[in-house]
């Protein structure tokens, strides 16, 4: 199979997930927290994936839960990559003292572990999804800035940028019209891999209980089912759907990420997947 085929399959899978999240009220037969039947009902026509311990419809929870998961994953990734890209381009383009100072600061911030800091800060601010996404995006960009800065720096020294400057293009124009488009491959690949990373982390954080318990998302669904003994009770329909949902989107994003990374990194060209 070629790289492109993988990319398109991934895009198709992602499209399905986004459609479900967007059209959740039309797709889900019940509300996410609505009690609609007796507990532990196996899948049937009324409850596509059965019901959980209090009789909520698992299919509906899955559909609504996709919103939380996707918002968290993609918003943090978007924010983190945007900050990294802007800061990286500015640092690479202007260089000099600003670059020097910011790089030193990044050097110092690098070893601060993001994941536990995030846990502390979210507990302190007692947050919603959006706040955590913003925190996550800002903290995550510490590691992304360098990734963008390096190619921006070498681009800024190429003759065509010199040329653009010599015909009187403004700095802003050079950065947005000349440097950014050339960095788009790196930025896109970074965005896709960050989305996968943040999405899985979001589900994981929810799995260990970061969100407040009223929020229904895949992580809390898995946590709820697992800690209530869904495995030993043989209630597979309770735990499998959210798990498979996470695995599906994570795989799609991972494959898309690797395909992009490879097509932009000629050194890895031999490794056709």
């Amino acid at each position: 199979m070629t790289r492109n085929a993988f990319l398109w399959i991934s895009v198709a899978i992602l499209a399905v997930y986004f459609t479900v999240a967007l059209l959740a009220p039309f797709i889900a037969p019940y509300g996410a927290t609505e009690i609609t039947g007796s507990p532990f009902q196996p899948p049937d026509s009324g409850h596509l994936f059965g019901t959980n311990d209090v009789g909520q419809d698992i299919f509906s929870q899955l559909v609504y839960g996709s919103r939380v998961t996707l918002i968290f994953g993609f918003c943090s990734a978007l924010l983190s990559v945007s900050i990294s890209t802007c800061a990286g381009i500015v640092l690479g383009y202007y260089g000099g003292n600003l670059d020097e100072v910011v790089c030193r600061i990044l050097d110092i911030l690098m070893p601060i572990p993001i994941f536990p800091l995030l846990i502390v800060l979210t507990t302190f601010f007692n947050p919603g999804i959006v706040q955590v996404s913003i925190l996550m995006g800002v903290l995550g960009s510490i590691h992304g800035i360098r990734l963008i800065r390096a190619p921006a720096l070498s681009l800024a020294e190429t003759p065509f940028i010199e040329g653009a400057r010599s015909i009187g293009a403004t700095d802003l124009r050079i950065m947005s019209r000349h440097i950014l488009p050339n960095l788009m491959p790196v930025v896109t690949a970074k965005f896709v891999s960050s989305s996968q990373h943040y999405l899985v982390m979001g589900v994981g954080l929810s799995f260990i209980g970061l969100w407040d318990t009223m929020t229904v998302d895949w992580g809390s669904m898995i946590q709820n089912a697992y800690s209530s003994g869904a495995l030993s009770l043989g209630l597979w329909w309770w735990i499998l759907p959210p798990g498979i949902a996470v695995v599906g989107i994570s795989l799609a994003l991972a494959l898309a990420g690797y395909s992009l990374e490879e097509s932009f990194n000629p050194r890895l060209e031999v490794n056709r997947i």
């Binding site: 899985v200 994981g204 697992y226 695995v247």
Partner: peptide, 16 residues
């Protein structure tokens, strides 16, 4: 690639 794409806690649950 596939192994890493699947979340750690999901591998753990499946292993259990």
């Amino acid at each position: 690639i596939v192994f890493r794409a699947i979340p750690e806690f999901w591998w753990a649950i499946m292993a259990v």
